[in-house]
Design a binder for these strands. Structure first.
Lengths: 132, 132
DNA sequence: TTGCGTGCAAAGGTTTTGCATGGCA
DNA sequence: TGCCATGCAAAACCTTTGCACGCAA
């Protein structure tokens, strides 16, 4: 199956790569592109996101507020995860050298091989803890 | 505000407690109760789940396939998390003594206080790894 | 009897799908 | 020119809400 390069395709990918490492929702992509004067149907955005996810350029992460997509610059090695603040809703990409040994332990002792790209920690970020 | 004890309320709670520690969707609760001959509207189930969540007897967890609710027998201390297999969809409650030090590290070194009740690891369970 | 809880249906939000048209190769 | 990609609208889900009625206290 051949695959064409369209301007919509490029627009979605550009939009994500400009926001590398910060997850964006499909609706936010449509809004961002509209501000640049590009009108793209949300169905197209979803279809492009699915395609980008299949080819591995973009990661889909699921939260308590719907799906987010992120263009990942680094290789998403075994020492990262995602964190979402339950108060402010911010999602951050968290790198921590202590994750790798944990993931290894979970794999060898518990039989679960972890996908760091989707793994999501919930809690409160520093700012929201202070404000609480 | 007074609160009444209804048979629907009891049915939802019983259904969850029979499946303690394994997350169940709202639709699954309706189905399970129907099999017992109890017809309960899904709106009622959602309303009961919300109430149970507010009073802390039930935890709501969000996955890539919608919300699940679980009756938690133990205190959900700082050494647990949830794991969902990306292949078979099974969700398990994972207790691991290595989680507590990680959560502490994330709190003190990264400023994120973790909520183990909602934190969700994704990956492959042992069975699905072998079958892959 | 009072008013909370229920059921049904409708509404809301997000994501997917069908179909005719547009545009890349 | 072929056929993949797009856009729009409709459909499909999941979850919430409105409203009249039922039922616990």
């Amino acid at each position: 199956m051949a695959t064409y390069t369209t301007k919509q395709q490029k627009a979605v990918l550009d939009c994500l790569s400009e926001r590398a490492d910060s997850p964006v929702s499909a609706a936010a992509i449509v809004d961002a592109l509209r501000e640049q004067g590009e009108h793209i149907g949300i169905a197209t955005v979803y279809r492009q996101l699915e395609k980008l996810e299949r080819q591995g350029s973009v990661h889909k992460v699921t939260t308590d507020e719907g799906a987010y997509y992120q263009f990942c610059t680094h290789g998403c090695a075994s020492d990262c995860c995602l964190f979402k603040c339950e108060r402010c809703g911010r999602i951050v990409h968290l790198d921590c050298h202590q994750l790798a040994p944990l993931y290894e332990h979970l794999e060898h002792e518990h039989g679960f091989s972890i996908n760091p790209r989707k793994t999501m920690f919930y809690g409160l970020c520093r700012e929201c803890q202070e404000g609480a």
